[in-house]
Simulated scan of single mutants.
Amino acid sequence: MLRTFNRVLLALAGLVLVALGGPVLVIGLGVKPPGWWIHQGEHDVLLTHHERTRWQGSNWWWPTVIAALALGLVLALWWLASVLRRHRLAEVLVDTGDGEEALLRGRAMEAVLAAEAAAVNGVEEADVTLSGRRNEPHTRIRLLLAPQAAPGDTLHRLTTGPLNLARQSAGLPRLPATVHMRPMRHRAQRVL
């Protein structure tokens, strides 16, 4: 959903910039504008003296401008932080059992867990993503099920097998998981 929001927001920002900058660019290139165009010539200004000073004496003008700019800045910073935030866990904190801790690369744990999940009876393919904090990881597993697989049995084998083994191996008190299953689709083939 964030990817869709980013694309819509970028498209709207682009449209606003084209709508505001396009007329100025066309006039600057020396093209004669039609009568309904915002600006009529190369020496025309963007804002007239009257437009720039119309609300200057009003008590509400500057607080409104400052509040709108502050809101725009906060929204831009929130958007930047959400885009730059890591969605995958880089490392997992592992309890070694002797009072010490070690760091395990998140991609390594994802690869092992995906291989173990793909080996479960009834699973054709598995994809694993770790998120959350390094001492409290959350697992998101996407499974492609074989045609004969029973989802309930496959989920039981996954949770008692690979997920339980990964939790015990990392020394985690719990390893929450979200599992998405979808059936394998076959195309119809002509039999001769």
Rank of each mutant, 00 (worst) to 15 (best):
31 V>D: 13
41 G>P: 01
6 N>A: 14
178 T>C: 14
137 P>C: 03
72 G>M: 13
99 G>L: 01
191 V>G: 14
48 T>D: 01
18 V>A: 10
52 R>A: 04
144 L>T: 00
19 A>K: 03
145 L>P: 05
114 A>G: 08
13 A>T: 12
37 W>Q: 04
79 W>I: 12
151 P>T: 10
111 A>M: 07
68 A>N: 08
2 L>M: 05
128 V>K: 00
162 P>F: 03
68 A>V: 09
94 V>D: 00
106 G>K: 01
79 W>S: 11
182 R>K: 11
189 Q>K: 15
34 P>I: 04
99 G>R: 14
76 A>D: 12
9 L>Y: 09
17 L>T: 10
171 G>K: 10
2 L>E: 06
14 G>W: 07
186 H>V: 13
63 P>H: 06
192 L>H: 09
54 R>C: 13
86 R>N: 04
11 A>R: 15
2 L>C: 06
11 A>Q: 15
180 H>F: 10
180 H>S: 13
190 R>A: 01
80 L>A: 05
18 V>S: 07
60 W>E: 15
160 T>A: 15
114 A>F: 08
46 L>D: 15
62 W>A: 09
188 A>L: 13
187 R>D: 03
92 V>M: 02
174 R>C: 10
151 P>H: 06
148 Q>C: 04
135 N>I: 08
119 A>S: 03
129 T>L: 05
78 W>M: 07
101 E>I: 03
30 G>Y: 01
186 H>E: 12
